[in-house]
């Protein structure tokens, strides 16, 4: 592996690394006060940059754990990360649903219209 290790970056590697860094900065700004989300994104970006800078690394890791090609490993990692992200966001959505429901409910109770008359 050491023999294939690239020490200089090609233009496309620089571009991809820059894009990943932008994603990292955006995620830091986006997830304010959410340390776990920030760490999660930084971790993904770090691994991404590592894979871009050292393309032989995913190939080596893939052969190590027996998933075939390096691109397969990247695909599996992305797919799992994507599903995990959906699950996390969906859970947040459910929590927001609960909050919205409580607000709507309290408003409905507070602003109720009492019986206008008693029927005879």
């Amino acid at each position: 592996m050491n023999a294939d290790l690239q020490l200089t970056l090609t233009p496309i590697q620089i571009l991809l690394s820059a894009l990943l860094l932008i994603v990292a900065v955006a995620s830091l700004r986006l997830f304010r006060n959410r340390i776990l989300y920030r760490l999660f994104f930084i971790g993904i970006v770090f691994v991404g940059i590592l894979f871009v800078a050292v393309p032989i690394l995913p190939v080596y890791l893939a052969s190590l754990i027996g998933v075939g090609r390096g691109v397969d490993l990247v695909f599996y990692l992305l797919f799992t990360g994507f599903l995990l992200l959906i699950a996390i966001l969906y859970r947040r959505l459910l929590q927001h649903d609960v909050i919205i429901t409580q607000i709507i409910r309290q408003n409905a109770i507070r602003n109720h219209r009492p019986p206008s008359q008693k029927a005879t």
């Binding site: 919205i100 709507i104 409910r105 409905a108 602003n111 109720h112 219209r113 019986p115 008359q117």
Partner: peptide, 15 residues
Amino acid sequence: VRDLPIYYLRHEINL
């Protein structure tokens, strides 16, 4: 139901 002798509560959005 405005003239009926009932309590009327309304959700602002459909839940």
